[in-house]
Nucleic acid binder design. Structure first.
Lengths: 208, 208
DNA sequence: AGCAGCATCAGCCAAAAGGCTGAGAGACCA
DNA sequence: TGGTCTCTCAGCCTTTTGGCTGATGCTGCT
């Protein structure tokens, strides 16, 4: 009988083959395909309908991991999607879970953690690395400090180095509104200046 | 006979095993050891004296890749050191080459590039991925755009979100001087505002 | 000796950002 | 229906930042 069919999605060949080698040590895993991009992943899921999709979020070019997850969900595939990435940024975690990821693993997870996560995922269990889980809990404990969607959008543009005027133009709102949002963002991030907000955002949220 | 002995250094197990699997396909490579940290790498080099050390720069905890390279050089090992990392940040490239790296590969390099780089490294050839090389050349062509040490110091503090006043206090210079430095930095980075400078610096220089 | 680059500082003015208060419209939920 | 969010906007005032010009001392190179 075949074991748990797995699709690997990562733009780095070495990561794919490493993961494949690692999963190959377990008798119940069966890596049926590998994709280097989100687009490729969609096609291969159609083709093989694997039980689990293990996906990196940061894909060099084209569709990123989050987008790929959304697309997979829309096509009502029954795959469990497991995020496997390097960084534990708040934004990515929330967006991935939001998009429909079953678990969130960091690349420095131990082999046992990885195995357990994949096995759990097919059973509908949601598994995540400890640092990831603690971040999520923190957000649940302090909902006041979580940015609203609009604020997150602004912050993202802020980290591009835009001025208030440019932010307003880009979002079709007045400069006054921009300043209001910024004030709220600063309060939530615990900073006083736009410079510190950018620094915090990029470091904390992995916004690049 | 044994082939080219290689030590792999990367804090991610999957990357190590992926690379190992990849190098295993070539008859002339011989991965003799793997390290998950800079400290471990130093010990294993002593023990095995491999011909080539393939090293990631970003190591989770403890000694980072650059520091490990320096240490290896000081102990006058004859190993060729090859950087194998995800990001092509200006700062990292310069620091790695400065520390004594023979080559600089990005993780999305093709297998052939990787093989060629390792074989080249043992022969004393310096190999780097195309994007890396172009960055280096650009710095050579436009030395005017390279920050002075003092400017780099300021920029680094700038990315912490400090105000002009704080920068002055931290560096024991007047606010006027801070503004002068900033104006020069902006010109060299091709930006107009401090926000854009921070964004550019963190993204381009990998300042985190 | 002279020149170039670097780091330092000053003053002036305009533009941008930030702090504060208040307020209206729509969505959502108890 | 009433309360709570969220998003939107305005005005006023202070602080910060940025643009410009000019200047001094030091170092290193020619």
């Amino acid at each position: 009988m075949t074991g748990i069919t797995v699709l690997l999605v990562d733009d780095h060949l070495v990561v794919r083959s490493g993961l494949k080698a690692l999963l190959g040590t377990q008798p119940d895993f069966d890596v049926v395909a590998e994709a280097a991009s989100g687009e490729e992943a969609l096609g291969l899921v159609e083709q093989h309908s694997p039980a689990v999709v293990v996906m990196d979020l940061a894909m060099g070019a084209g569709m990123d991991g989050i987008e790929a997850i959304k697309q997979l969900r829309q096509r009502n595939g029954r795959q469990a999607i497991l995020v496997f990435t390097t960084y534990d940024s708040d934004a990515d975690i929330v967006r991935a879970v939001d998009a429909g990821a079953m678990g969130y693993l960091l690349k420095d997870a131990s082999p046992d953690e990885i195995f357990a996560a994949i096995r759990g995922a097919v059973q509908g269990k949601s598994v995540m690395s400890a640092p990831v889980a603690s971040r999520l809990f923190q957000q649940l404990r302090n909902p006041d400090e979580v940015l609203t969607p609009r604020e997150a959008e602004l912050l993202s543009l802020l980290t591009q180095g835009l001025s208030n005027r440019e932010l307003g133009q880009r979002l079709f709102i007045s400069e006054a509104t921009v300043k209001t949002h910024l004030a709220h963002i600063y309060a939530k991030l615990g900073v006083e200046t736009r410079a510190a907000a950018i620094a915090t955002a990029i470091r904390r949220e992995g916004m690049r």
